[in-house]
Design a protein around this nucleic acid. Structure first.
Lengths: 233, 233
DNA sequence: CCAAAAATGGATAGGGCAATCCGATTGCTA
DNA sequence: TAGCAATCGGATTGCCCTATCCATTTTTGG
């Protein structure tokens, strides 16, 4: 009956058959769990296993990992965009700015997959990228307001937020469950350095184009992690 | 003739046959190149291919990746320890401290493998770990002196340097060749936040034990990187 | 120069992953 | 309810990785 709720961005595809819709749901639920735990590096096969569906079903529904990522992280990205909106509503732009950073970084810490999403871009994941861009525009406005109050250093650039997320992802991925709050300290340090007056000049920001390229390159050869012989026994 | 130079830490193993020694050298040279480019996640097989030796030769000489890492990064770790020594020689502890950070982070940026090494620990890589510990002791001294001059905030903890390296590794790995200098800006921001007077309190440092555990866990399930369908064409 | 010892590297076993194929099953609609 | 189309998921192909085995080649030393 219900013509498959479909996220507001779905291009009105015809509704799936009930069993297919059910499996789709099981897959996204499983993917959320697996990606949160293992990051976007998790295999499609592991998601299928977790979901209890056949591999073919996995690939039929989500031919590429981008599509799965798009479906899975859309709501996270909504929450992310929401954090920007909340920050913009704050009567004190600096307070809003700081709150936004803490919220976004906490989201990264809570979900390895999302941490990856924030430092990677997926041109084919339309809905996700639209949210990201909306959030980005809000951030630029937020930054301007915060600078206007004089609390945010003048040479702060919107690309610094991307760098912040990359740095935070590094801490989150390296510490994991062993030191789940370590990121808070690093983020707090960075926030203090964002505060005006600047204590000194900074090296130039990377060009936005370069940063985009960096985010595009998801992982060319194998950025991966050590692995070593981490015996899984 | 020359009884195999062997790094000063080698436990006086009997000298290898000349061809074996030659291959060992080819392997370490190849590994340096491959690890620098791909990080420690690179496979043993890829190193063997780059070295032009059989896989068996690879495993005979270096039964585990730890041993290879130990052999390959010992000189980098020496340089790292050297950076600490240089910093300790600086008449201005704060200046030395800043210089050390910039040098160490530049080393991370120049070598993905070393970036991983600095945020990972390999209990079985004896020589490497010894250097790390030596460097660590020097750093503690350096930190104390820098605090004594009043230029380094009082609540700075030696574990913050580990966090700094984790954050830097995140930026370096995410940006790669696309924005090769982006890390400088992040590091500069962090250095400014290290400078006294502190602009505010910080969340507690992760316990050193937890941080050690974090560094140990190299990559339990699969911290890996996105990968997605990055066509390697 | 020759034989023993050491070393080599291709072959191979065993496992994981991406992606496709196809017979069996299930949901939908007339 | 009957039949068709959509869906399912195991099997399979192809690739890469770790690790070991063993017949062949190379070095060394008398």
């Amino acid at each position: 009956m219900t013509p498959a709720p479909q996220h507001p961005d779905g291009p009105a595809t015809q509704p799936l058959r009930s069993d297919a819709e059910r499996n789709r749901e099981r897959i996204t639920v499983a993917a959320r769990k697996v990606f949160a735990r293992d990051g976007l590096g998790a295999s499609m096969a592991s998601v299928a296993r977790e979901a209890g569906v056949g591999i073919a079903t996995m690939f039929r529904r989500f031919p590429t990992k981008e599509e799965l990522v798009d479906a899975v992280f859309l709501d996270r990205m909504d929450a992310y965009a929401q954090a920007v909106a909340v920050a913009l509503d704050d009567p004190d732009p600096w307070h809003g700015f700081v709150g936004y950073i803490e919220t976004a970084c906490a989201m990264q810490a809570a979900d390895s997959g999302f941490a990856d999403v924030l430092t990677t871009t997926f041109p084919t994941a339309k809905a996700l990228e639209r949210r990201r861009n909306e959030a980005y525009e809000g951030m630029v406005e937020l930054i301007n307001r915060a600078k206007a109050t004089g609390r945010l250093r003048e040479d702060f650039d919107s690309s610094d937020l991307v760098l912040l997320h990359m740095a935070n992802a590094g801490v989150v991925n390296a510490t994991g469950a062993a030191a789940p709050d370590a990121w808070r300290r690093v983020v707090a340090l960075l926030i203090q350095s964002f505060e005006a007056p600047a204590r000194g000049p900074l090296p130039a920001s990377p060009g936005h184009d370069d940063l985009y390229k960096a985010m595009l390159r998801a992982s060319p050869p194998a950025d991966a992690a050590p692995e070593l012989d981490a015996g899984d026994g």
